[in-house]
Structures are given as structure tokens and as C-alpha cells.
């Protein structure tokens, strides 16, 4: 059987097709590509390593079980893995028995995207992480706040409205505007390079 390294040249969609045929090494190749990002995201939201492991493991295994039913018109498999990881993590956070375990807004807003001072982040040749951070930094503060509270803090729009003391409609508007602006900026900055191994 080929090891995961043999799959390096394959596009994500080809790997999904192989997983659908029961090729476990293809799933491992997808784990090589997205496992670290998924785990980092889950850990950022959940703050507990064992929970993050559980969520990420189950997301990959959901693909293993059901790859035949994967709908590519909904999005790429990379987006699926990260979206489902985020979705599951946020749901788990919201059902925590002890609400104080959930991170407060300061933590959610705290540079989730900058490494702590004592951590040297690995060099990333494509620079896309830097581009996303730059794009986020360029958002108006109110929009960035809404996005970060939601995405990293797992707060709903209603909770943010209550937290910040603004109408729900204002939260919706800020979120929509912030996302549209990020979309445009990332497109400008070469969004297509996010997943360098995916040729569209």
C-alpha cells in the first residue's frame, strides 16, 4: 500500500474520491494537509487540547464514513474540514456546563492570530497567514470585533449585541460588512493561494 507521501501530488478532490473508495492513506494525506490547521482552530476556540482532539478526530472520521456523499458544490473538502471543525467547536463551547469556562470577550479579541511572545512561529513560505492577518488588521475596529467575538469566541450575534450594548441589527450589519470586506481584500491578495495544492 502506498504511504501518504505518495499522495502529495494529488488534488484535494482526487483525495476525497480515493477516500470514498476506502483508501485510508488518502484520508491520512488529507490529515497531513488540514489536520494541523483544524487542530489549531479547535484549540483556539475550545482552549482544551483533549476536546480539540476529539472534535478534529470526529470531523476527519465523518469524512471517512461518508465521503461518497460529500457534496463538492457546497465547497471544497478543505473548507468542509475547517467549517465542520469550527461548527463543532462552537457548539461544544456553547454547551459547556460552566459558562465561566467559556473564554471572555477579551480573550476572544486578544490577538488570536499573533503568537505569544515566547513562541516562535514556523516560517510560512506562501505568506498567506500574514496576508489574512493584515487584512483583518485593516478592518474597521467595530467590524473586526464582531467577527473575532463570533468566530473565535463562539458568541452569537444576539450575545454580541448584549455584550457590546448595540442593537442586533447593528451586529448583523457589521458582520456582513466585515466579511464582505475581508472577502474582497483576500481576493485581491491572492486568495487562490490559500490552498496551494488545490488547482481549480
Amino acid at each position: 500500500m502506498l504511504g501518504p507521501k505518495a499522495y502529495r501530488g494529488q488534488q484535494d478532490s482526487q483525495l476525497v474520491a480515493l477516500v470514498a473508495e476506502g483508501d485510508a492513506a488518502a484520508l491520512e494525506a488529507l490529515y497531513d494537509r488540514y489536520g494541523k490547521a483544524a487542530y489549531s482552530l479547535a484549540l483556539r476556540v475550545l482552549a482544551v487540547g483533549t476536546l480539540a482532539e476529539e472534535v478534529v478526530r470526529e470531523v476527519f472520521l465523518s469524512l471517512w464514513r461518508d465521503a461518497r456523499r460529500f457534496d463538492p458544490s457546497r465547497g471544497t473538502v478543505g473548507t468542509y474540514l475547517l467549517s465542520m471543525t469550527h461548527h463543532s467547536s462552537v457548539d461544544v463551547v456553547r454547551l459547556q456546563e460552566n459558562p465561566r469556562r467559556r473564554q471572555g470577550p477579551e480573550e476572544a479579541l486578544a490577538l488570536a492570530i499573533e503568537p505569544p511572545a515566547d513562541v516562535e512561529e514556523e516560517f510560512e513560505p506562501s505568506g498567506r497567514r500574514g496576508r489574512v492577518r493584515a487584512a483583518l488588521a485593516e478592518l474597521p475596529e467595530a467590524q473586526r470585533e464582531a467577527l473575532m467575538l463570533a468566530y473565535f469566541g463562539g458568541y452569537t450575534q444576539r450575545e454580541i449585541a448584549s455584550l457590546v450594548g448595540i442593537p442586533l441589527e447593528t451586529v448583523r450589519t457589521r458582520m456582513a460588512a466585515g466579511m464582505r470586506r475581508l472577502k474582497d481584500e483576500l481576493r485581491e491578495a491572492g486568495r487562490q493561494e490559500q490552498f496551494p495544492w488545490t488547482r481549480r
Binding site: K36, A37, Y39, L41, T79, E121, L147, M179, L182, Q194
Partner: peptide, 17 residues
């Protein structure tokens, strides 16, 4: 929009699982 949120995910500090 999910491509944008995927970018947010990719922007987090990478932690080795």
C-alpha cells in the same frame, strides 16, 4: 463566506497536534 472563515482558521497560531 466559508472560504473567508477558512482563511480566519488558517490565520490562527499553528499548534502541532
Amino acid at each position: 463566506f466559508e472560504e473567508v472563515t477558512a482563511s480566519l482558521a488558517l490565520a490562527t497560531v499553528r499548534v502541532q497536534p
